[in-house]
Design a protein around this nucleic acid. Structure first.
Length: 627
RNA sequence: GGGGCGGUAGUUAAGUUGGUUAUAACGCCGGCCUGUCACGCCGGAGGCCGCGGGUUCGAGCCCCGUCCGCCCCGCCA
């Protein structure tokens, strides 16, 4: 029977002891965070998940027989990250306090030392600040996780989970589970497939979300559901996208959009209060977050997740350009002609002209070379170029490809529309609407970081929440030249739009909503369509036949006919929430064991090949790529 | 599928126009040291310059290919 652990139990953790405990005999377990051998005595910093306590090994410690001497001898061999147990006495450090440590007023004079385990020299130091690259840290993730910053972010996750469970439980929600292995349905995000051995040749899909099942819970009468749940999507990764991620998933019956908003606002307020100690009422006294129509968000910011910590909105100049017939500029005239000929519709334009005004106070910080670099930046996103103009006295434009050719009338009209003043920098994009929006949206954020309006990473102490509401139900699929569901086919259209389903599908708005924080979408949901007649008309508008619908969603359509209550819900990206809350650089910093940009795990070497036997059993043959 | 950046001791980086023995800091190893807490001092070891090919008298450096990591577009809510 081992003396430590079996006999000597841990009495305190490494952040616990203060001067009040002076004279007590204690037992501490932990990792050697630092050793300082002074020849005659040895100091170590002992670390566990709570903190650090200094241990002193002095061979002359009296009152413990020979054991302090043995402990001292053993301590001289200690190295970083060895796992040890120490029995000793709490002693005041007197005038030698270490103000950097919460336990700095005391130290443990060791009477007995036990080495549980030695450790290889780690590839990087286990400290708060290290400059080791992420590649190395991911390879040794268990060591990276031993560092205080990651211990802290995982605690943030823990807290979010606890607050969420308490909040929804208090409000009468039931935490209910849904299957991960579900029926494969094409469309939407790509699914990870799970081959079935019992049905060789057939596959389950890993659930992209619990969407359909939570609706079935509503049909079943559970009324209020929530779940903290893993979701899986086989799409390319980004800084804020991982193939497996966690959602706080919510669904409610007999509610409208505003009921969902109030519920989630309550949750966010509770999380901010309990995790950060921030009372969001100071910024949002009503307890409500502002709302912005989707259309306004697209026009002003180029996407549906605007970062409102700074201004610099965009303006749509398409109408002006058409009115002025292109204003003497050939490529603008080309676009104007397409509208006049009816090739493009003014209410649903496929091509647009937009501009962003960089106010003089900011523009003056940008050298001409820096503005040239912006052109490279936008070209990387598919822009043909970045037309610009510097506003001179009397609204004249300089440093601009338009300066010579554009009519004074159009130039003046644009100045008025943009509110352009002397010293301002105007940046233009025109062409395919989706490209123009993407380019200007990214350019706006890029510039804001460059100009110091928002920090390069993190929240900078500012949290700007926004509901983006009332988007169109359908969007035009240019490749397949059909209308496609912008979200999913079960979103409820506004009542006053239902008549447009057949006449003008692009004009149908719906009860869908996204919750945006500092330019990141942290949640999204909708009020669901529970009326079978309207549902049928939506399918028809999408060109989905009854047979198609039955094959894909038969079980849901059946369920909706057996007494479905009006219902709606939302899913919050829990990882993104944790990332923004803790000011982390990427999702990888708040996910314990994340994947790389290519979706691999460099620590375990997943994904890997399956054995021929396993593949044979599943009747799967791997086709190697042709060279 | 496309664009951009990167890969040199354990780690982070420097490395000139292609030139002789590839540097530094931290870490690591050994020695000394009883008040350190970024301990200090003395000494030492450590390199597939991502990988493969090419150009050259000579390649860390130039060229071609390839792999890996990161950011973005497409894709994805």
């Amino acid at each position: 029977m081992a003396r430590f652990i079996d006999e000597l139990k841990r009495t305190h953790h490494c952040a616990e002891l203060r001067a009040a405990e002076e004279g007590k005999e204690v037992v501490l377990f932990g990792w050697v965070a630092s050793y300082r051998d002074h020849g005659g005595c040895v100091f170590i910093d002992l670390r566990d998940r709570e903190g650090i306590t200094q241990i002193v090994f002095d061979p002359n410690l009296t009152g413990h027989g020979d054991s302090p001497k043995a402990a001292y001898e053993a301590a001289r061999a200690l190295r970083n990250e060895w796992v040890v147990g120490v029995r000793g006495v709490v002693v005041s450090r007197g005038k030698n306090k270490n103000p950097k440590l919460p336990t700095g007023e005391i130290e443990i004079h060791a009477a007995e030392l036990n080495v549980f385990n030695k450790a290889d020299t780690p590839p990087f130091l286990i400290e708060d600040e290290i400059d080791t690259g992420e590649e190395k840290r991911l390879q040794y993730r268990y060591l990276d996780l031993r560092r205080a910053p990651l211990q802290k972010t995982l605690r943030v996750r823990h807290k979010i989970n606890q607050v969420t469970r308490r909040y929804f439980d208090d409000k009468g929600f039931l935490e209910l589970e849904t299957p991960f292995m579900v029926k494969y349905t094409p469309g939407g995000a790509r699914n990870f497939l799970v081959p079935s051995r019992l049905h060789a040749g057939k596959f389950y899909a890993l659930a992209e979300s619990p969407q359909l099942f939570k609706q079935l819970y509503m049909v079943a009468g559970f009324d209020k559901y929530f779940q903290i749940v893993k979701c899986f999507r086989d799409e390319d990764l980004r800084l804020d996208r991982q193939p497996e991620f966690t959602q706080i998933d919510v669904e409610m019956s007999f509610v409208n959009q505003d009921d969902v908003f109030r519920t989630m606002e309550g949750l966010v307020f509770a999380v901010w209060k309990e995790v950060l100690g921030i009372d969001l009422h100071e910024k949002y006294p009503s307890g409500r977050f502002p709302q912005m129509p989707f259309d306004e968000s697209m026009t002003k910011y180029g996407n549906d997740k605007p970062d409102l910590r700074f201004a610099m909105p965009h303006d749509d100049l398409t109408a002006l350009v058409i009115e002025h017939g292109g204003g003497g500029v050939s490529f603008l005239a080309d676009i104007a002609k397409k509208f006049e000929s009816g090739q493009l519709r003014r209410d649903l334009p496929g091509e647009i002209v937009k501009a962003m005004r960089v106010p003089g106070e900011h523009a003056q910080k940008l050298s001409r070379t820096e503005v040239d670099k912006l052109e490279d930046f936008v070209k990387g996103m598919g822009a043909k170029g970045l037309a610009r103009a510097k506003v001179d006295k009397d609204g004249a434009w300089t440093q601009s490809p338009f300066a010579k050719t554009m009519t004074a009338e159009l130039r003046q009209a644009i100045n008025v529309k943009l509110g352009a003043k002397e010293g301002d920098l105007l940046l233009f994009q025109f062409g395919k609407a989706s490209t123009v929006h993407t380019v200007l949206a990214n350019l706006r954020v890029h510039l804001a970081k460059k100009l110091g309006l928002i920090p390069e990473v993190g929240h900078g102490g500012v949290f700007n929440f926004l509901w983006v509401v009332n988007p169109p139900l359908f969007e035009w699929d240019e490749d397949r030249t059909t209308w496609a569901a912008a979200h999913h086919a079960f979103t409820r259209p506004h009542d006053d739009c239902v008549d447009l389903l057949e006449k003008d599908p692009g004009k149908v708005l719906c009860y869908r909503y996204d919750l945006v924080l500092n330019g990141f979408e942290i949640g999204g949901g909708s009020i669901r369509l529970h009326d079978p007649d309207v549902q049928a008309r939506v399918f028809r508008a999408l060109g989905i036949t009854d047979d198609d619908a039955r094959a894909k969603f038969g079980f849901l359509l059946d369920a909706l006919r057996f007494g479905a209550p009006p219902h709606g819900g939302i899913a919050v990206g829990m990882d993104r929430l944790a990332m923004l809350l803790s000011g982390a650089e990427s999702l990888r910093d708040v996910i314990p064991f994340p994947k790389t940009q290519k979706g691999t795990d460099t620590m375990t070497d997943a994904p890997n090949r399956a054995s021929p036997e396993q593949l044979a059993e599943l009747r799967i043959r791997v086709v190697e790529p042709q060279p």
